[in-house]
Design a protein around this nucleic acid. Structure first.
Lengths: 109, 109
DNA sequence: ATTTATAATCGTAATATTACGATAAATTTT
DNA sequence: AAAATTTATCGTAATATTACGATTATAAAT
């Protein structure tokens, strides 16, 4: 054991968890904020903005790409990253749905 | 090395990351959905709804409590959990802010 | 006082994440 | 062709997470 039993949860629960992981590390939050505000785009510029090694930033970018929330286009020898707006909207919608799902009635505790 | 260098990020970035962790595991998403929809409240009922051991569920509940998004009140020998609506609103607001922060202009990639 | 019921905690194993230096890969520039 | 620039990947170490059985703690009920 030790790994997440993804097979016992719904596809939606797993997707929400995966999208949440994009925001579940402050470095990735910082990267997404830079991309959202178009303050950086080229990988090297992102590295310059963050006090982390180039390899570490690259690893976070890879994880964000795996989730799908960013995409990269090569402009050799540079790589330009940006937010994938369709996935961004998917995340906004899913989280919005979750946040709106609270039933307000006298709570039991 | 190996741990997150929280001290190099802003308080907001760290808070967003921490709140995102509440949703970054499908079991915790499932727990929050149960609580949000008042389908369960007592710890034992949550355990019954999920195919995970009691100890594992208790561990996830502890993490959610640490983040602050749920609170528990004892009703011996039971413990009743519910969503902390003020933290829930904090999360909604912070994520909404992040999602709305994308500047839409011709992207560079 | 003993038993029962419920939940938290302990101990532990397996796996995942975070971080970085070093190296490799790819393409321009010289 | 060689050098320079930029980014990805590899290898590795430290730490964190996930999961569960077993035990402990707590308070009610008997």
């Amino acid at each position: 054991m030790g790994l997440t039993k993804t097979e016992i949860f719904t596809a939606e629960q797993n997707r929400i968890a995966d999208l949440a992981k994009a925001f579940a590390h402050p470095a990735r939050v910082a990267i997404l904020q830079l991309l959202a505000q178009k303050k950086a785009c080229v990988c090297g510029d992102i590295v310059d903005e963050l006090p982390l090694a180039q390899a570490t930033v690259s690893q976070h970018l890879k994880e964000l790409k795996r989730i799908g929330i960013i995409q990269g286009s090569i402009d050799p020898p540079r790589v330009c990253y940006c937010i994938d707006e369709s996935i961004w909207e998917e995340a906004r919608q899913l989280f919005g749905q979750v946040f709106d799902s609270v039933i307000v009635e006298k709570s039991c505790c």
